[in-house]
Design a protein around this nucleic acid. Sequence first.
DNA 1: CAGTAATTTAACCAAGTGGTCAAAGGTATG
DNA 2: CATACCTTTGACCACTTGGTTAAATTACTG
Lengths: 201, 201
Amino acid sequence: MSENELNTEQLILIAARKVFTHKGFDGARMQDIANEAGINKALLHYYFRSKDKLFESIFKDVIKTFFPQIVSVLVADIPLFDKIHRFTESYIDILVKNPDIPVFVFHELSVNPHRLIGNIRETGADIGIIGEQLRKEAEAGNIRPVKPEHFIANLISMCVFPFIARPVLMGIMKMDAQGFDSFIEERKQIVPDDIIRSIKV
Amino acid sequence: MSENELNTEQLILIAARKVFTHKGFDGARMQDIANEAGINKALLHYYFRSKDKLFESIFKDVIKTFFPQIVSVLVADIPLFDKIHRFTESYIDILVKNPDIPVFVFHELSVNPHRLIGNIRETGADIGIIGEQLRKEAEAGNIRPVKPEHFIANLISMCVFPFIARPVLMGIMKMDAQGFDSFIEERKQIVPDDIIRSIKV
DNA sequence: CAGTAATTTAACCAAGTGGTCAAAGGTATG
DNA sequence: CATACCTTTGACCACTTGGTTAAATTACTG
């Protein structure tokens, strides 16, 4: 077997991720996933015992590949304004490659909070470091004092929301798919600029 | 019959809205809705022919009661900075009363864009007026020139996103339900302030 | 109050769902 | 080649689903 050939388990995971993120847990059919993977439905139960178990694998995987990439920039030891620029750019890049993830995650979290919230907690995301950085910059007189909760909420909101509201934004702004892509590309500059303008003294 | 007594059709609509917005179309069961309304399942099909038809009623209704309230402020003939404050306050107020609506709408739109996008188009939301206002304010030297698409995207993002990401934000910011409410209340001031700071000359 | 129409119900149905299982096919090891 | 083990499959099952229907109940109307 060649190196780049995928084994059945990987094949299932890829197919399941595609179907679950597109249709959600309730909308996804085991048969859909089997078809997408080009295998028999019973094989899904052979590798993963149930739909729930399979879903949990996917959800865990999505969270574990998403959050750390984002958090790593936020807690990095680099100047604040650099950090804001880098965060925006890398976050939007990830989202361009995975545009369905936000709606998927937030919907599942909303429908089933108690069961899935643990996966978020486990990531150990912490705003302590960025809070400290904001405090120091304010003390040094580089920015005005800001609450880290709102700073982070603003930053993440402006990056993620357009991907969640894509069809609505395309509607009210009369953009086609290509127009939306340019719009997103522009935001890599606009978002950090506006954020920095809003915190500068 | 007293005035405040609801007829069966209204009863169904209220129950259906609750179940659909909580569980989504795929997760909602006709039996759930019947139970919630305290009626027989067959009655749902008597008043609304199918699950699809019932859902469409709810979705249309949600869109029609949501969008106009938001757009009306955006196109009102009031000074820009007032408008930003009023928009934020009224939008957040609506969201506090209907916290599940954003995730519901965006998920359904994401799972079934072709079928539902018409409901958005019909609202006739238009950013022309606010675009014009921004242009004039920039000409008058009150703000710097900004692209209306990004201005609106920023404004809406910062208002709506916290409601979409509520469980995640509560997790990383270590807030309980009450803490989240205060956080949202704070944003009525923070969001317009930050937006205005970002566009002032 | 009779009779007609609108409303509500319980029982039922066909299709689709997640899940099981025994058997077949494949692969490594002695 | 035999044997044991892992992988894959088609057929199947119990249960849930949206939806139907005929009968029962209620409301309206002359």
